[in-house]
Design a protein around this nucleic acid. Structure first.
Lengths: 225, 225
DNA sequence: CATCAACCGGAGGCATTCACTCCGTTTTTA
DNA sequence: TAAAAACGGAGTGAATGCCTCCGGTTGATG
C-alpha cells in the first residue's frame, strides 16, 4: 500500500520501519477524519509515537501529506479514464462524480488536497491538468447525445463536488450518507429533462443536518468562539 | 439604521457618538467582506479609530456582531413571511431562497451568523424557530400543488443555501454573480418535473471558479500553509 | 555479550494570531 | 479653564502549531 524506504538508502532499522508504518496508518486515519488541519502532534499521538519520530521519517508535514495522498490522487485520475470508457456517457459521468464524492466524503484530507491545500498544491494542479480534458470530453459526449444540459461546464462538476463534499465530510459521524441525498439532487439538475424526480435517500433529522452544516463551515475564528 | 445610545443612559459625547457610527459602518463593511473571522483590530483600523475605542462602545466582539446583524436576521424572518404570502407557492419559495442567498453572498458575516457562529448563536437559533415553520408550510403548499418534488424537506433549503453561499461569498470579487448559476441549477433540481432546463447564468473562466473554490474552503491550517 | 550508531520521546523554542486592557495624552463640555 | 469623558496603540496573556534539542533507550553487528 505504501512504498518502502527510498531505493538507494540503507534499510531502516526494524523498529524504525515499524514506526514508519504506524505513522502512515495513523496519519491516514487522522487526516481522513479531521482533514489536513490535524496536527502532526495528533498524528504522532494516534500512532503511539513521539513527534520527533514523525519528523525523523518525514521532513515536514507536506512530505507526509504527499506520501499519503499521491496514490489517492492517482486513483482519481484513473477513475476519470474509466468513466470516459463507459459506453453510456451519462452513466460514466455519474460514475465519476459518485466515486470521487464518496472518497472525498470519507476522507477530509483527500478533500483538502483536491480543493487546493498548499501542502500538496502543485501536485494536485498537475493531476487536474490530466483529469480535466478527460472529464471535459466525457461531458461533451454526454451533451452531444443530449443527455446532459448543454450549458454544463467542466468546472461545474468540480464545484458541485466541492459543495457536496463540504457537507458530507462534516456529517460523517452523525449521517455518513447524507451526501448521497444531495448528490441525487444535483444529478437531477444536470440532466436535460426529466419527468419524475429520482427518489432521494432519506434526510436525517433537522438537528443532525444543522449540526453538519455548522461543522462544515468551521472556519476557525468565524465559528469557534 | 442603527439604534441610538442606550435609553436610560446619558448621551454620548459628540466625538464618541461620531466614532460609534464610524465603527458600525466599518464593521459592516469589513465583516461583509471577510466574515466574522475579521479582527476587531481590523474593524478599528477601517474605522480610523483605535481598538480601545471599539471596546469602549461594545463590551466584546459578540456584542458588536449582534448589534450589526440583528436587523439583518429580522429581515430574513420578514422575507419568509412575505414569501409565504405569495399566491404562487413556487414563486414564493424561489423568492425566499434567492433573496436570502443574495444577502448571504454579499455578506460573509451574515452567512457566518446564519450558519451558526458562536458570536450570535442563540440569537440565530431563536430566529430559526420562527422562520422554520413558515418555510415548512410554504414548501408543503408547493408540494400539495405538485410544483416541488415531494421528498423535499425544510432543512434541504438551508443546506442548499449554505452550499451555494459558501462558494458565492468567496467568489465575490472575481465573479460576484457566480452564485446565481448554482442557484439556477439548484432550482432545476427542486421542481417535480421539467422539460428544457432553465438557462444558466454564464460560468466565468475555470481559473476564477477554481480560485473561488479554494477561497471558499479556507479552513485555516488546512489550506493556508 | 558488548559496543555504538541509530532511534526514541516529549519538553520546549519560536513565531503567529487574536481578544482584550492599561495608561499617558487629547478633546469636549460646562 | 478645569474636570470628565474619550482617545490611541503598545502591550498582555492565552492559544495554536510547526518543528528541534537532547538525554536516554534499543537494535544491529562482531
Amino acid at each position: 500500500m505504501v512504498r518502502e524506504t527510498n531505493d538507494a538508502e540503507r534499510p531502516l532499522r526494524a523498529d524504525a520501519a515499524r514506526n514508519r508504518t504506524k505513522i502512515l496508518e495513523a496519519a491516514a486515519q487522522v487526516f481522513a477524519q479531521r482533514g489536513l488541519e490535524a496536527t502532526l502532534d495528533d498524528v504522532a499521538e494516534a500512532a503511539g509515537v513521539g513527534v520527533a519520530t514523525v519528523y525523523r521519517r518525514f521532513p515536514d508535514k507536506g512530505a507526509l501529506v504527499v506520501a499519503l495522498f499521491e496514490d489517492a490522487v492517482e486513483e482519481i485520475a484513473a477513475l476519470a479514464r474509466r468513466a470516459s470508457d463507459f459506453e453510456d456517457s451519462w452513466a460514466g459521468l455519474t460514475f465519476f462524480i459518485e466515486e470521487v464524492l464518496q472518497r472525498e466524503c470519507a476522507n477530509q484530507g483527500l478533500r483538502d488536497v483536491i480543493v487546493g491545500s498548499p501542502y500538496a498544491r502543485e501536485r494536485m494542479a498537475l493531476a487536474k491538468q490530466r483529469i480535466g480534458p478527460v472529464l471535459g470530453e466525457l461531458i461533451a459526449r454526454a451533451q452531444r447525445e443530449g443527455l446532459v444540459r448543454a450549458d454544463l461546464v467542466e468546472s461545474d462538476v468540480l464545484v458541485i463536488e466541492m459543495m457536496i463534499s463540504t457537507l458530507g465530510g462534516a456529517a460523517n459521524k452523525a449521517a455518513p450518507d447524507l451526501w448521497r441525498r444531495y448528490l441525487a439532487l444535483a444529478l437531477d439538475a444536470l440532466v436535460t429533462r426529466r419527468d419524475a424526480p429520482r427518489s432521494l435517500p432519506a434526510a436525517p433529522s433537522a438537528e443532525v443536518v444543522l449540526e453538519a452544516l455548522r461543522a462544515s463551515t468551521a472556519r476557525r475564528g468565524a465559528l469557534r468562539a
